[in-house]
Design a protein around this nucleic acid. Structure first.
Lengths: 294, 294
DNA sequence: CAAATCAATAGCTATGAGTTATCAATTAGA
DNA sequence: TCTAATTGATAACTCATAGCTATTGATTTG
């Protein structure tokens, strides 16, 4: 009956191959010489290869033994690397993190977060995808995404979330619009304007929040256009297709044809949340969450 | 106290990673489920990495476990290749054969031998070096050479030899020399010519054999030039520096300026021998010797 | 020729791989 | 709402074998 090959055999072989001396090698391995002899014999029988030439008072490697010796050095090295890499993966120090986000999060939050995270864990790779809120939630549940940035009030059961940014809105007007931050008093001044808003489908929760804002200010807006990109909104506003309301984080310092009026005084806020599946065991997720929870 | 990592652990892990089911994997490995669980746990402790997520009724790989699974496939494959290659080396089916030879052996013997051997063992590489007889013997004893082709009567103790070619001599004359194979009767006809011979140092044994030939024919030759290359001999003969005697195997079919007269009737023969050290354990040597001994 | 040095062998010991029996937790079916 | 079935983990045992001691045999050395 043939024995199973074990790493023990290879470790012992390596020691004898280095020392070319059973007694010394055995001492170094903290086992007895006969035990070592037996294990080497077993290795030779298992491989069906003669590894050593035992002469009267000296031991030599056969060509096959010499070959095995050089290969094993690489081999053990390879095994150690596999183990070390597994440990890094286990601790989330290397790996892959799949992120998704609503377009507006890319303006401020995501870039800062990624920069900070990369500094801490430079070996973790990201994949980034912009998608609407519902698609993001589906991605989380199917484990296609690890972490999503959404504007959603109520999440599906089982997902966890953490508010990342709680922000007021601001008006977007053409640069030459008669109303500016001094003459602005209340939203009712715009009851006869057309509004360009983010698509309802893209983020129902956000859309609902904006509508609430209008309702609390006593009118229902005329919505002339829908889009999912803030740049499109700015272009349309600049060309007098209407005015708009967006989260403050989308306010740009130097946008050519438009101006912004912050609505800080109104109580309404939109919340950008980081959302994840607590069952997702990607260790890199734990690490990026730690960064967010501070 | 930490256990040693053994191939057993990795084999068991692989089975569980494939089945994602401890009981099934245990069955496949012909061990009990608790034993398998214990070994996997030991592996996880040793690596300090969680490899599986044990849920209530299903087992899943962690990212680190998934990584380990893919790496191990390559890993075991690599180990098998090392073992297989060791076996080939052990049987002399791959490897390296260091040959040395006296220049005259390259004319006929070595090429034929190498062609036949390469046909049988295409994966064995040769290294070939021309050197004088004494250097060849030294190379054999220091294991720098595996097999030597020499012209030597008595070998150092311990080396073994096998005659490869036993050949007569032949005269080398300028093409327009008055004597040809018809008018040639006996060597005495050349007692007043100068002779160009192989260097004594290069092969004392051969030199001695040639001198014997002259002595048996009743004269001591005038030796005008020594060289170690047959081509140099032919050039000198062609240009009337003298005549020569060489082993028959150096006779060329179509040498421009010289003609050959075989001395088959004389009893003198020179022997080309293959020589090796029986203590040399290069398995490829055994295989090429088998070819020679036929 | 005695003493020292080497690896192999024989026979014993005890560690730990693998066993059986059981538990705890959950799911599926009646 | 039970029961039966299915899962992996745990506990306690047992037996195979890794490793031990003592010895041999072969050789070198002083």
């Amino acid at each position: 009956m043939s024995y199973q090959l074990e790493l023990r055999h290879l470790r012992y072989f390596q020691a004898v191959a280095e020392d070319l001396h059973f007694r010394k090698a055995a001492e170094r391995l903290f086992i007895s010489q006969p035990g070592l002899s037996k294990q080497i014999k077993e290795l030779e029988q298992h491989m069906d290869v003669q590894l050593f030439e035992r002469h009267n008072r000296k031991v030599e490697l056969t060509p096959a033994g010499a070959y095995l010796k050089t290969e094993l050095a690489h081999y053990f090295n390879g095994l150690n690397q596999i183990i070390e890499h597994s440990q890094l993966l286990d601790r989330g120090l290397v790996g892959n993190l799949k992120l998704s986000y609503v377009g507006s999060a890319m303006q401020q939050i995501i870039p800062d977060l990624l920069l900070a995270f990369r500094k801490q864990h430079p070996k973790i790779l990201f994949s980034l995808k912009e998608m609407d809120n519902q698609t993001q939630v589906d991605g989380l549940l199917s484990q296609e995404t690890d972490l999503a940035f959404v504007r959603l009030e109520n999440l599906p059961r089982g997902l966890k979330s953490h508010p990342v940014l709680r922000e007021a809105f601001c008006l977007v007007l053409p640069k030459n619009h008669p109303i500016d931050s001094h003459s602005f008093k209340e939203l009712g001044q715009f009851k006869n304007e057309s509004f360009i808003l983010f698509d309802q489908q893209y983020s129902p929760s956000y859309y609902h929040k904006v509508m609430q804002l209008f309702e609390d200010n006593g009118f229902a807006p005329k919505v002339s256009h829908n889009t999912i990109h803030s740049n499109t909104i700015y272009k349309l506003v600049e060309n007098h297709f209407g005015v708009s309301i967006v989260p403050k984080s989308l306010q740009l310092k130097s946008q050519k044809g438009v101006k912004f009026i912050p609505l800080d005084n109104l109580p309404h806020r939109t919340v950008l949340s980081a959302v994840w599946d607590p069952n997702n065991r990607n260790p890199a997720l734990e690490n990026i969450l730690q960064l967010l929870r501070i």
